[in-house]
């Protein structure tokens, strides 16, 4: 298990500031799915009863449909579990030094990536749709230098507040460690680098 007090490659003095998951509505969707899928066999059962069909008392179809219902219930249970696992393992952690992005894609694929806060060039928050606006959830995009991919915090609560918090942490980190994107730019294009010799004084 991952502990917030002992993150992988944690530096001394690095403190976790934000621990984010997708908005609870995603999880509610999984439970709604389960509820809807559970109602289906009962609805069919009710239709059989109302239609006075004797299929359940048939020597073959009674047991066969019972087993089919059992399989259906087991499959719905594991699909619900997989959705909860997917929700539960999508995590974004923001510390005083870096952003850690952990994403679970299905059950057999997982991405863990991180970027240092002093590499960040742009932070964008995006809220869209009626529910997103009404319940204040949305996405936050974190952009680093050109060739790096951008991080996306998907469907998180209060994206504007999160953006402001990260922007403040980025400014603090750049103040302490320098702007990594500027340093990278200087390494790539040394001709544009600031001359190392001090300027000659024109004062006499």
């Amino acid at each position: 298990m991952i502990s917030l007090k002992a993150l992988p490659n944690q530096e001394s003095g690095e403190v976790t500031v934000l621990f984010l998951r997708r908005y609870w509505l995603d999880l509610a969707g999984a439970f709604f799915f389960t509820l809807a899928m559970t109602i289906v066999p009962f609805a069919i059962w009710g239709a059989i009863k109302l239609g006075h069909l004797t299929i359940m008392s048939q020597p073959f179809w009674g047991p066969a449909l019972t087993l089919l219902l059992g399989c259906y219930m087991l499959v719905v249970a594991v699909i619900t579990m997989a959705q909860i696992t997917d929700y539960f393992l999508d995590i974004w952690i923001v510390t005083t030094e870096r952003v850690i992005n952990i994403e679970q894609h299905g059950l057999f694929s997982r991405t863990v990536s991180e970027l240092r806060l002093n590499q960040v060039q742009d932070i964008t928050s995006e809220t869209s749709g009626f529910l997103g606006t009404f319940l204040t959830y949305g996405d936050v995009f974190i952009q680093t230098a050109g060739e790096h991919e951008r991080f996306q915090f998907k469907d998180i609560d209060n994206p504007d507040d999160v953006k402001l918090t990260i922007a403040k942490l980025v400014a603090d980190c750049k103040h302490r460690r320098g702007d990594a994107s500027l340093l990278e730019h200087e390494e790539r294009e040394p001709s544009h680098a600031i001359p190392t010799e001090p300027p000659t004084s024109h004062l006499t």
């Binding site: 087991l74 594991v78 696992t85 952990i102 059950l107």
Partner: peptide, 27 residues
């Protein structure tokens, strides 16, 4: 027989879920 196969598959899948949560979840 086919029911047992489905039962086995869902049980294995359930344990995969538990393994993922236990290994990669937050403490």
């Amino acid at each position: 027989i086919p029911f047992s196969i489905v039962l086995l598959a869902t049980t294995v899948y359930m344990f995969f879920n538990i393994y993922h949560i236990a290994k990669f979840g937050m403490q």
